[in-house]
Nucleic acid binder design. Structure first.
Lengths: 190, 190
DNA sequence: CGGATTTGCCTAAATGGATTAGGCAAATGC
DNA sequence: GCATTTGCCTAATCCATTTAGGCAAATCCG
């Protein structure tokens, strides 16, 4: 019997691909084993359990997403940075819907604190440097951007905007323009 | 053996309560049967399958949410209506996290088209009447509001804002102020 | 190179959820 | 009161998760 060369890392990578193809919810040890031509029980030398698999996929998705955003934002400021951030985020979600769903998998607090989620928060604040907001307004802005980006992309990937004009891309562009305007005027908002 | 008095409607109601207590994901026929002191198989005279249970809970959650929003928006206009809409939405989610999760359960297109989801869209447009936006800007605004409301509340209920100052309520208020400003100035935005 | 050890995937088995088929008793109609 | 209907039950199947233990391939070491 030829060995399949399983490893935790390989399983997580294969799991991430599987998630993009069949959905994160459906990405289970049994499916993954089928895909790899291996018995389900064999995965348990490399994974603690099904939850562990999902958590690991979530963590790598968060890393990938942070890497993309980080690369996009580097060397940009102001509206430029805002748009680059937003597009990197959305493009990742559209290219990798399963991984994107994974990135929203609820992590227990310690795991979350050690995840790339904190990089996201830092990068959002970095983008906002271009808008010169004082606390606590800056925190509100971080939360606004997080809400809009994730909310829009979740609705879009769930098919919420499909088959209706204008297309999602157009709304996205307009919304980013609007956010830029809002952030520039926010300090003086009543 | 005394009969339990099961009915589709009763199961869905009990399922919605269960979802608020243990989470929508965990709301399965087996859990529901345990909760009702009944064998799992007995549910299948009233429900087609597990997916059917979740779909029905989702549909009632959408109705409830639409009812709340509808009552909140009635007799209000402009910023008043915007804030009433937003608060009705958020309050429902905070009071009924399981039902709120259910309301985001992916429905097949025909089911979605016959659901209260369309009432939500209509009510959002009604709120926007106070802002006098022309198409396609109005559609962009519908999508922006949907994104912010759902994005914010999902992040909040997932614990994204907990244990950090300022508290979520404050950000929510500021964000609504910001949206109001943005909507009033949007037509003239570059 | 060859034997010992480690490692890796396997088979076997327990547990539990989803689902279907068929039975029996309670409710209902007359 | 009896016949019919209805409703929940038992029984059984299938599939996913998870654990335990075995055997062979890879690796190590002399």
């Amino acid at each position: 019997m030829v060995r399949a060369g399983l490893s935790t890392e390989g399983l997580v990578r294969a799991g991430a691909e599987l998630a993009d193809e069949i959905g994160f919810e459906q990405t289970t040890p049994a499916e993954l084993a089928r895909r790899l031509g291996v018995r389900t029980a064999s995965l348990y030398s490399h994974l603690r359990n099904a939850h562990d698999l999902k958590t690991r996929i979530a963590l790598t998705a968060l890393e990938e997403l942070a890497d993309r955003v980080s690369a996009a934002v580097a060397g940009r400021a102001g509206k430029d940075a805002l748009i680059a951030f937003a597009n990197a985020y959305r493009d990742y979600a559209l290219e990798h819907p399963g991984r994107f769903a994974a990135a929203r998998f609820p992590l227990d607090p310690e795991t979350a604190a050690a995840s790339a989620g904190v990089r996201h928060a830092r990068m959002t604040r970095a983008v906002l440097r271009g808008y010169d907001l004082a606390e606590p307004q800056q925190t509100h802005a971080v939360r606004l951007l997080g809400s809009v980006f994730s909310g829009f992309v979740v609705l879009e990937t769930a098919g919420g905007f499909s088959h209706s004009a204008p297309d999602a891309q157009e709304s996205w562009t307009e919304i980013l323009n609007g956010l830029d305007t809002l952030l520039r005027t926010w300090p003086t908002t009543s």
